Computed example of a mutant assay.
Amino acid sequence: MQNFFPAQYSTLSAAALKDYLIKVYQLDPSTTCRLLIRNVSDTYILENQTQKYIFKIYRDAHRKCDEIEAELELLNILKAEGNSVSYPITDVAGKQIQQFNAIEGIRNGVLFSFAEGKVILDLDSAHLTQLGRDIAKLHQTTSSLKLNNPRPVFSFETTLFEPLKDLKPHFSEMIEEYEYLSNIADKVVKKFEEFDTSKFNYGYCHYDFFPKNFHFDEAGKITFFDFDFAGQGYLINDLMSFLNHYFFHQLNNLISREQAEKDFNTFINAYQQVRPLTDDELKAIPYLGITFHIFFLKFFYDNYDDWSNAFLTPRYTKHRVTLIKKWEEMYCNF
């Protein structure tokens, strides 16, 4: 009988993880462990009567160890600077990264503090004001540091040109859709020639500031989490990613356009109370939405095999291109 046959993606046993993590972190023996999300990263929740934690297992194909180290370095700095984030827990040996010899090879895992509170999708003025100020405060830290290890860079090369090059074979029978993406990418680059980007704030972005990635507790305190996409770029990328919340909320008929604009302006005004934005930065936010959607279309393409679902069928791909067209119609003026 041969040894384990190589696998592309395994799911680590929650029961085995429980025993291992109780030992290396000296957790309460009554702590339970269960799988929450099986995705590009697998997420487990550990809890006992007094404590909760999140344990995330990364995939080597998605995040190399040095990128994980950079994410943890960023979170440790944010925590030290007083930002409310879910932060990595150190084990009894002083480590913040655990390594597991899974069937597909080494997988890295990190235990995070639990973000108290809950997701709120319908944010009122108080929520939006707190959110704007807290993201601006977070940017005060991320705009003034350089991490020792690499993180992704969000540029036109990485969010437009590389994705379109890699995606071209996928669009072999969707010529019209591919031409649209190529044309609008060129329009975005040309539009940015109108802006004085030398005055744009630059630093480490979260790049996924949807409400699913921050919790409000009963006192209104926000805790940010899931910095898996954190990378360097214009800081307004984070404001753009939050604008996507209102984009999808409108498409799902959960909010009127007028209310969405009012709410987003409340958020932006609160942000600017802490970190002012140039007029060009404000004008540029919608156009970065095009780069965001093309970037994630490539992400879905790159990780299709590991998700084991119906992503990237021709129907789904055309749906995503239609979303970009709707974004252009709603927010852009080329």
Rank of each mutant, 00 (worst) to 15 (best):
Tyr58Thr: 01
Pro211Arg: 07
Phe227Tyr: 12
Val321His: 05
His319Ala: 08
Tyr287Ile: 07
Phe216Tyr: 14
Lys326Arg: 12
Tyr204Trp: 10
Ala61Trp: 03
Tyr180Leu: 07
Asp306Ile: 15
Tyr25Asp: 00
Ser256Gln: 00
Ile103Ser: 11
Tyr207Asn: 08
Glu116Ala: 08
Tyr287Val: 00
Pro88Tyr: 13
Glu173Trp: 07
Lys187Asn: 06
Ile175Trp: 04
Ile294Pro: 06
Asp306Asn: 12
Tyr9Trp: 09
Arg275Lys: 13
Leu164Val: 08
Leu243Ala: 07
Thr43Val: 15
Pro29Phe: 06
Ser308Phe: 02
Ser10Tyr: 05
Val153Gln: 05
Ser172Glu: 09
Pro286Glu: 02
Ile103Thr: 14
Leu12Cys: 05
Ala115Leu: 03
Pro286Ser: 09
Glu177Met: 06
Cys33Phe: 05
Arg315Ser: 09
Asn265Ser: 10
Asn83Asp: 00
Asp263Glu: 15
Glu258Ile: 12
Glu261Met: 10
Leu72Val: 03
Phe224Cys: 01
Pro152Cys: 04
Asn303Pro: 01
Tyr25Gln: 02
Phe171Lys: 13
Glu73His: 12
Lys262Val: 02
His319Trp: 15
Asp122Ser: 10
Leu75Ile: 10
Tyr304Gln: 08
Asp28Gln: 12
Arg151Phe: 04
Thr11Arg: 06
Asp91Gly: 09
Gln232Ala: 13
Lys95Thr: 05
Phe334Ala: 05
Ser13Met: 07
Tyr53Ser: 06
Leu312Cys: 07
Ser241Lys: 11
His319Pro: 00
Leu297Asp: 08
Phe195Asn: 03
Asn3Val: 09
Tyr304Arg: 06
Glu218Gly: 04
Ile120Leu: 04
Tyr87Gln: 14
Ala16Trp: 01
Ser144Pro: 00
Gln98Glu: 10
Asn213Thr: 01
Glu157Trp: 13
Tyr178Phe: 15
Ser256Pro: 00
Leu131Gln: 05
Ser113Ile: 02
Phe292Glu: 01
Ala230Asn: 10
Lys56Met: 04
Tyr53Phe: 15
Leu288Val: 08
Leu160Glu: 05
Asp228Val: 12
Thr278Tyr: 00
Cys33Thr: 13
Lys199Gln: 15
His215Met: 14
Glu157Asp: 15
Ile184Ser: 00
Asn83Gly: 03
Lys79Ser: 01
Lys318His: 01
Ala219Tyr: 02
Asn253Asp: 15
Ala80Gly: 03
Gln49Glu: 08
Ala136Phe: 08
Phe334Asn: 06
